[in-house]
Design a protein around this nucleic acid. Structure first.
Length: 585
RNA sequence: GGACCCGUAGCUCAGCUGGAUAGAGCGCUGCCCUCCGAAGGCAGAGGUCGCACGUUCGAAUCGUGUCGGGUCCGCCA
């Protein structure tokens, strides 16, 4: 239950209609702008509404006066302990303790499903992420996109969307031909030829050696001839091997894509490019013309050239974008239009792409294409992930492919563990650069958010384990805890913790709505902090300890709170794909 | 030259998509270990939200301009 929505519904369906019926408010007054939120300052109460402020105009009444009119209706609600008008016309409500105790029982009854909702109503969403070119192992930057995409997917599933995790395989462009040639070189090496240096423009990575070896073992000298005789074969084998490599790296992170869409097989060879461009052409959005040269720095070999263009400027792009290269083949953009067209045809009106920030300049044109293809019905949100910089004890780890100090995703994950890697990747907004320090992320101190949050969960579990041993009279299953005399939780710090827990559904909803999984990381840190604080309070004040030997009822109520903390922390971590720790080791 | 992202406390970052006296951690200052885990805890100091206009009951949040940092910029994907 999102309690803010609950009270918003009260306003919309009960309070205002009753006043309209009593002719105190005009018929058909617009309620869209009414919000119910937690006040920033807790001393203002538990919830706050701007109703009087935003309805003032429609009611032809000053906000404060309207607030006076509304106030009795709020005060009369059975959940409300006190209602008052503040500032320019806010109505602040303080809710009864019993209301909060009931929320605690909600959490225990719902368990890990607490915070789930049906906001998505089963609507299909396609999340395309990673989509690293199949030319080698993944690096840390790919890892960030992978974790962000996967967590976002879980988050949207939690609020009721039908999510498809998708990987777009760029296997139709020039770089996979380069890959094939690079493998062919390793193949010739395997056959005994001496190759002193990898020529410029080919991939030097050693991960291609086994691929060349395997082909040599299988086929011997069969592919020694002209490139035309082996290119397609080598390309297919190499791509398949690289995808296996990538899938293995993703598996290490616990990520599985439901669909892999091949640019070559599923888009180009299916004639999707022509199909998509036919749609655009029919709308008069494709033409042949000459682009202005880019201003500022002019490329050396610039010359005006006539080319086939998409009128993306009509949808907010800066210039129209070319669809064909000068050799007559399609540009990558043309294929990408077709790819998004294909997603639309598969029934995804809502699409999310997770890209590296270096593709930022590409967003507008693809969104323009989606708008054009759907007449504005399709929505594409692009999440750009900024760079991850690696360091160790504050010293930057230099990354250079040439010097051989290139750090792969696999190396990082194997060193710090999947859970640490995933959580850290979500501790920053996606469009904010992230520093990943090998020493800091595994540090066992409260400076490390991963540890701090896991520790809160482990601590809660530890108390419950101990209670099972020391307090045999207290039933610890969630259903029994939910029936405990929760009104015994009367200390302000206990109630504050319950309020925070009760904010979880709203947080999940807003994180899902804005496509911002990192919000969960910050919430979990706050929750952990409050829980640790309460724990510590028990150290100073024996009366606040969770387990009180001669008071089984009070203990049951407190353990209910502890269990609720464990539930919410665990469900947050689960969205992140991080396993909640039972104990810290 | 243009586009996109970012400018919030000494540092690293949040800020619920327009609300009230702008928050957290680190660092700093001062207190606190006979305790279900001190691998910490409590409290305090610290900010003209880059700057300037504008929109309105109300702006860190929206718009325009401007300054600073990053990324990118016709046939690479």
């Amino acid at each position: 239950m999102n309690l803010y929505r609950y009270f918003l519904d009260k306003i919309r369906r009960e309070i205002v209609p009753a006043l309209v019926a009593a002719t105190a408010l005009p018929e058909g007054i617009a309620l869209d702008a009414v919000t119910v939120e937690p006040p920033r300052d807790p001393s203002h109460g538990d919830i706050s509404t701007n109703a009087a402020l935003v309805l003032a105009k429609g009611a032809s009444m000053p906000p404060r006066k309207l607030a006076d009119l509304l106030l009795p209706s709020f005060a009369a609600l059975h959940e409300v302990a006190a209602a008052e008008i503040a500032g320019p016309g806010f109505i602040n409500l303080r809710l009864k303790d019993s209301f909060w105790h009931a929320r605690l029982a909600d959490i225990l009854r719902a368990g890990s499903a607490y915070g789930d909702s049906n906001a998505g109503a089963g609507k299909k969403v396609n999340i395309e992420f990673v989509s690293a070119n199949p030319t080698g192992p993944m690096h840390v930057g790919h890892g960030r996109g992978a974790v962000v995409g996967d967590a976002l997917a879980s988050l949207l599933e939690k609020v009721g969307f039908a999510v498809t995790r998708e990987y777009y395989v760029n296997d139709a462009g020039g770089q996979v031909d380069v890959l094939a040639r690079s493998v062919h070189l390793r193949y010739r090496e395997a056959l005994g030829e001496t190759v002193d240096a990898i020529p410029d423009g080919l991939y030097p990575g050693e991960y291609l050696i086994p691929v060349g070896n395997a082909i040599a073992v299988r086929d011997n000298g069969k592919w020694r001839g002209e490139e035309a005789g082996w290119l397609a074969q080598f390309r297919a084998t190499a791509i398949s091997e690289m995808l296996d490599l990538i899938r293995a790296d993703l598996a290490l992170l616990g990520i599985v894509h439901e669909t892999f869409v091949s640019e070559r097989r599923d888009i180009v060879e299916q004639g999707k490019i022509e199909a998509a461009l036919t749609v655009l052409d029919a709308a008069g959005l494709v033409y042949v013309g000459i682009l202005e040269p880019p201003k500022g720095k002019l490329p050396e070999d610039w010359e005006p050239r006539e080319q086939t263009l998409f009128r993306s400027t009509r949808f907010g792009d800066d210039v129209d974008r070319p669809l064909r290269k000068s050799d007559g083949t399609w540009t990558y953009f043309a294929a990408d239009i077709a790819y998004h067209f294909d997603k639309l045809q598969r029934g995804f009106a809502d699409m999310i792409d997770v890209w590296g920030a270096d593709h930022g300049g590409y967003v507008k044109r693809v969104q323009a294409a989606v708008t054009a293809l759907t007449g504005g019905q399709g929505r594409l949100d692009v999440k750009l992930c900024q760079l991850v910089s690696l360091s160790d004890h504050g010293v930057p780890v230099k990354m250079s492919k040439r010097a051989g100090t290139f750090v792969t995703l696999r190396e990082v994950v194997e060193q710090v563990g999947k859970d640490v890697f995933r959580f850290v990747m979500l501790t920053r907004r996606n469009d904010q650069p992230l520093e990943f320090d090998f020493a800091k992320v595994v540090e066992q101190s409260k400076d490390n958010p991963v540890f701090y949050v896991q520790y809160a969960h482990a601590r809660a579990r530890s108390v419950l384990r101990l209670a099972a041993k020391d307090m045999p009279g207290v039933a610890l299953d969630p259903a029994s805890l939910a029936r405990a005399p929760l009104d015994r939780l009367a200390d302000s710090s206990e109630l504050a913790l319950i309020r925070l827990l009760a904010g979880w559904p709203r947080l999940v909803e807003s994180a899902a709505e804005t496509h911002e999984p990192h919000r969960i990381a910050f919430y979990l840190q706050e929750l952990a902090s409050n829980f640790h604080a309460l724990w510590n309070k028990g150290k100073d004040t024996a009366g606040l300890r969770f387990m009180v030997a001669d008071a089984p009822e009070l203990t049951a109520a407190r353990l209910a709170l502890v269990q609720a903390v464990a539930v919410v922390v665990a469900s947050g971590l689960t969205v992140f794909g991080v396993e909640p720790a039972e104990e810290m080791r």
